[in-house]
């Protein structure tokens, strides 16, 4: 089984995220870059499937130079190789362009499974897996809380508003996972050492035969007119319960007309 896992470097979860005044894009330099949390679950799924069925796991990322650290971090969990699409022309790419780049990087490599986290903590759009599967014409099994592969049949549970749907498809399949799917492993010391020697292919926009005009900020199909920090919420009132805590909340709710 040959599995690709697409990962993203995002600002550290707790860091304050800001847009840059000049480009209206996320200020990525001011915060530490980390592996998007949900992508760890995607890597874990790929590793478990390969451990059960043999095969290889390739980590794929699009991002600036320093996203290489994140790629190595994901590889150190136990993957075999990496692909890093890095190009100055990619900065400011929207979801449409990002999906085009990832699809090109994945195309023609005979992956049986392409796995994503269902959402990144910065953009939170949850659309890239669907877009990539659309571009590649592959089956889409997303928001999965459970995935099983038997032979070339994949069975999964897609989380829905009302519970979950059980889905089946024949490989190759594009999958996205939610955090209920597994418990990601920590990279072992051995894994961290080994990751340094794993092959990483670096690709530019030209290497992918993509039109430079189709990616980057200039190609975005939506544009930011303006943005502003929301005024911080006024500090609330916090009281300590001395026997009438519940009543005091009821008073607050009455004053604010909830009851």
């Amino acid at each position: 089984m040959k599995i690709a896992v697409c990962v993203k470097q995002v600002p550290d979860t707790w860091a304050e995220k800001k847009l840059k005044a000049d480009t209206s894009t996320l200020d990525r330099e001011s915060a530490d870059g980390v592996l998007n949390e949900l992508d760890e679950y995607a890597v874990e799924l790929a590793l478990q499937l390969v451990e059960a069925n043999s095969g290889e796991v390739v980590i794929v990322t699009m991002g600036p130079e320093r996203a290489a650290e994140t790629l190595r971090k994901a590889i150190s969990m136990g993957a075999d190789a990496g692909i890093h699409v890095v190009d100055a022309g990619l900065g400011g790419s929207d979801a449409i362009a990002t999906s085009a780049v990832l699809a090109k990087a994945l195309e023609g490599r005979d992956f049986d499974l392409i796995v994503f986290g269902s959402e990144s903590t910065d953009a939170r759009m949850s659309v890239i897996p669907a877009m990539v599967s659309e571009r590649l014409g592959l089956a889409q099994v997303t928001f999965a809380q459970k995935v099983e592969v038997e032979g070339d049949t994949l069975t999964a549970e897609r989380v829905t508003d009302y519970g979950f749907d059980t889905l089946t498809a024949t490989l190759p399949v594009v999958v996205s996972v939610v955090e209920k799917i597994n418990e990601p492993r920590y990279p072992s010391f051995k894994g961290i050492m080994a990751a340094k020697k794993k092959p990483v292919e670096t690709l530019s926009v030209a290497d992918l035969n993509l039109d430079a005009a189709a990616v980057g900020a200039g190609a975005a199909w939506s544009e930011v007119a303006d943005f502003a920090a929301r005024p911080p919420k006024a500090a609330g009132v916090v009281v300590t319960d001395e026997g009438a805590g519940g009543t005091s909340i009821a008073d607050y709710l009455t004053t604010s007309k909830f009851i």
Binding site: G236, V237, G245, G246, L253
Partner: peptide, 24 residues
């Protein structure tokens, strides 16, 4: 994030709140 917060045991505060709401 609280507009109004109570530091206390929820098993004391919440039933009292429910009771108050029901009465009011």
């Amino acid at each position: 994030l609280a507009d109004y917060g109570v530091v206390g045991d929820l098993f004391a505060v919440v039933p009292q709140l429910t009771e108050e709401i029901t009465q009011r």
